[in-house]
């Protein structure tokens, strides 16, 4: 299952797309896996996950059919 990375999350991982293990089936598990795999993400003041271009809560299920993205604190404007 692939996950898109943006902003500082992309810089931390060093790549714009990562593959995550298939046993991850919800947003909470994805966040835990990300924090474990890339500890520098813990320094960010927030980390949101978007599923199909919508901000997703921790309980939302994810599958390989979804477009999943890691959204670090936004800073537009």
């Amino acid at each position: 299952m692939s996950v898109l990375l943006f902003g500082v999350a992309k810089d931390i991982a060093g790549v714009p797309v990562i593959d995550i293990p298939e046993h991850i089936t919800d947003v909470a598990a994805l966040k835990a896996w990300l924090y474990n795999s890339y500890p520098a993400l813990q320094q960010l003041k927030s980390l949101m996950i978007a599923v199909n271009r919508e901000y997703a809560g921790d309980g939302q299920l994810i599958s390989s059919d979804d477009e999943i993205a890691v959204i670090p604190p936004v800073s537009g404007g």
Binding site: F6, G7, A50, Y55, I71, P72, V74, S75, G76, G77
Partner: peptide
């Protein structure tokens, strides 16, 4: 609009 854009729209500056 500008306040909300800065909070919710996924745009990042370096």
């Amino acid at each position: 609009v500008i306040d909300t854009l800065k909070e919710t729209v996924p745009i990042w500056k370096k």
